[in-house]
Design a protein around this nucleic acid. Structure first.
Length: 111
DNA sequence: GGCCTGACTTTAG
DNA sequence: GCTAAAGCCAGGC
């Protein structure tokens, strides 16, 4: 990996691609895995660039509360919830049901 | 080249 | 318990 081309968003993509099926991840977890919990904003911004790579399951990325804050960037926004429900994740009013159980921490399982 | 914005999170009052 | 502000990096204007 050429470090010069290895930007923050690329690191985010790498982690997001490793999110298992039927699980979701939070910006904070990804940021923490990258070593900068304060840079959670960059994770969100990087996900905005994920449109360059359709293989990235951006619908599995939600905020700390389990809310689908990023759905507004989907086309249509309802698609994010649809994809999550298709993976067995129940979503109601942009809120993931049993979020703590569906949450996936790369710091604990990916190492 | 400088300022503003952004799919967030945490700490302080 | 709720509200306000700071912090992070990259891109756009």
């Amino acid at each position: 990996m050429p470090a010069q081309n290895w930007s923050f968003c690329e690191s985010v993509f790498d982690v997001v691609r490793k999110v298992p099926y039927g699980r979701v991840c939070t910006y904070g977890n990804i940021a923490k895995y990258l070593g900068a919990v304060r840079s959670a904003r960059l994770v969100g911004w990087a996900m905005n660039q994920s449109h360059n790579d359709p293989s990235i399951p951006a619908h599995r990325i939600v905020n700390r509360q389990g809310l689908l804050t990023g759905k507004i960037h989907f086309t249509p926004p309802e698609r994010m919830q649809m994809l999550l429900e298709k993976e067995g994740i129940q979503v109601t009013n942009d809120q993931i049901i049993d979020f703590e159980r569906k949450n996936w921490n790369p710091n604990l399982e990916l190492i």
